[in-house]
Design a protein around this nucleic acid. Structure first.
Lengths: 204, 204, 204, 204
DNA sequence: TCCTAACCGAGACGGTACGTCGCGTCTTAGG
DNA sequence: CCTAAGACGCGACGTACCGTCTCGGTTAGGA
């Protein structure tokens, strides 16, 4: 018996959850979040724009942060590409990173992400949730790529993969959050190039 | 006549600003900010702890963010080390980065910085101020180091220094903000090593 | 269909207004107003004493003055006596005035009324509201009494009733606001006596 | 040796009080008070308009109320007419009351007076000062007039003069403070007529 | 066909913090 | 000794969101 069936077994009496409200809330939150960031987005405004009541929002999302998390997840992580295997570290990383970087630069996600990061600093539980949904999946994909490169002998066995991941992703977050330079495709290629070269060092 | 003299010429009428209040406000804000981050720090609480009135705070700092900026700047950037010239890119970068990384890891600055970054996303003016005081000075120091390395012929003339800076600093911000791993000295050495190796690539 | 039914037809959606809060606010305001007058009564203090939030007060009373107006109206005008017809101007006026004067003298209403009058000077809308609720109802009662006296032939048809009302009520307000002498029952009788004599003049 | 000389004997060292400031403060306060009443008049605004510092105002006037008192006294009581003796109660009262009523109606004094009365309710000391400067002098003038009428036998010895004064002045304050009707000359004549008739009653 | 559980909107509630204004006091430099 | 300038501690203002709580109504499955 599958998990899904097990969950569906619950008796579910009473009026079912309104799908219309769920979608309207996510849509309203999305617009407001991308418009002004987490702080500028009030639950009252979300409720009003969605045509629902605040109680309905709080019934399904315990906090504004978790609502934002789901909003972002829904429209962002939806298009996470399947890992492709090009046979080279640089190729694999580029295939992984370039669509993500393009998406990051397309809309003002920085506003929302910075807000979520800020909340995460003071709320360990939320931080955990945030990492589990946004950070680790992407790092996992890159980890596999590095693992394959090690297996192939392309890079050293003792490569510090975790630090390499911080270098790789950190560079994009740096531009996303500080806004001092755009997240261009060229930047993505340069970053991947430097990271690959960095871990490919051959100390004599 | 020097600038200093010219400034001193100002008549300085009226009761002078209270140095005691200034220090008390910065001290109170510092404690509260490191304790709970930007959001948890209310101007009311700062005023009460400092033994001043809110009006006095707002007279000198237009917003909580700018107060936090000055607080952080005062106690953080105070100990920015003078650039040292070791004759090697790796040595220079390590001398610059290691004290900074040590400081970053010593106290919960992540809370405050994440908060400031969040505000910067929605307030271009504040973002500019933030970059001018926190980001650019440090990048300038590293820029010089890279410039010397290019001059020495240690790295290629066409090195993308700006991207290298994003790699370098981004890695530290990544750990600071995401909290998935500690900002150890070992991490600093690894990051610098990878960055140096990355820009030292010798394409055949 | 009666008006009452028509009003009841209103759907009354949402959480109903808290009767407990309404009463607590009026009670708290009453105590504070009689204790220290309008100026010394802060909305913060009313909210704290009533155990409500300021927002709840402002939701139902747009200003401190209108809250004070309702407070006073509730506990003061509640006991406005029905007009009695003694068949003589002096008797009717005494029956109307003496309970009112007794009430005026019993508690420090002067504080509140003086405050309200002060606000009324600068706020025509509030002045209108004040007159409609406090002044005109009492003047109307006295107007009727004078009208009956004219009808009976007790006083001249061309009596300037409005001025007589100013004389009558003004004397009490004079003592109430200036506090130079108490509002005794004897004073009430004297005032009514002089006013009745004044309008009963028979110029030869 | 006169009192005046004795006072002038004081050594008076240092810079003398600035007459210019004194006048400017009174003028500024007068404009602001007549413009918006006591509450709307801030000491900051008075100081700014007068071109003085707040400290200078507080050095010579202990509070806003006492400043307002002097302002009003200066421009109002200045023209208190000398008592005239017409030989009849009505004539004497009219000579006393009509110029005062005309002045009352000419400018928005109600605003200021209502404000002062409000403050007097909560500050017995100020109430005393207010009565001594504004109320009693005028009542004294009227008291003398009633005394002469009693002496002449025009009215009864046992006339309750104090109540008569409350009737007389109260009628004007009533219109001044409630604003329901104008302070016309006709009203002054009517009031005086009724008061005189009231105290002239000849009970058989 | 009714009962009853779970949902829904509307909107009032107790709180906390906001940024501003006015008070009366103070601390300077200067006439 | 007085003055202007202006900063100071204090306390209240009226507003905005927070997350919670009633309400009257709606929508389903089970009795």
């Amino acid at each position: 018996m599958s998990d899904t069936e097990a969950l569906q077994e619950a008796p579910r009496r009473g009026r079912p959850r309104s799908e219309r409200s769920r979608k309207a809330i996510l849509a309203a939150a999305s617009e407001l979040l991308l418009d002004g960031g987490l702080d500028s987005t009030s639950m009252d405004a979300v409720a009003e724009r969605a045509g629902t009541s605040k109680a309905t929002i709080y019934r399904w999302w315990p906090s504004k942060e978790l609502l934002a998390l789901e909003v972002l997840f829904a429209e962002w992580d939806a298009q996470r590409p399947a890992s492709s295997d090009t046979g080279a570290l640089a190729g694999d990383l580029l295939a992984l990173i370039r669509p993500w970087a393009r998406q990051l630069g397309a809309r003002p996600y920085g506003r929302v992400i910075a807000g979520l990061l800020a909340r995460a600093q003071s709320d360990p539980g939320f931080a955990e949730e945030y990492r589990a949904r946004f950070v680790e999946p992407r790092r996992d994909q890159a980890r596999e790529i590095f693992a394959r490169a090690i297996e192939r002998g392309e890079i050293a066995k003792r490569t510090d993969v975790e630090s390499a991941l911080d270098l790789l992703y950190g560079a994009f977050y740096q531009r996303l959050l500080h806004g001092h330079a755009p997240l261009t495709d060229r930047f993505a290629r340069t970053v991947v190039g430097y990271v690959v070269a960095g871990v490919s060092q051959t100390p004599i």
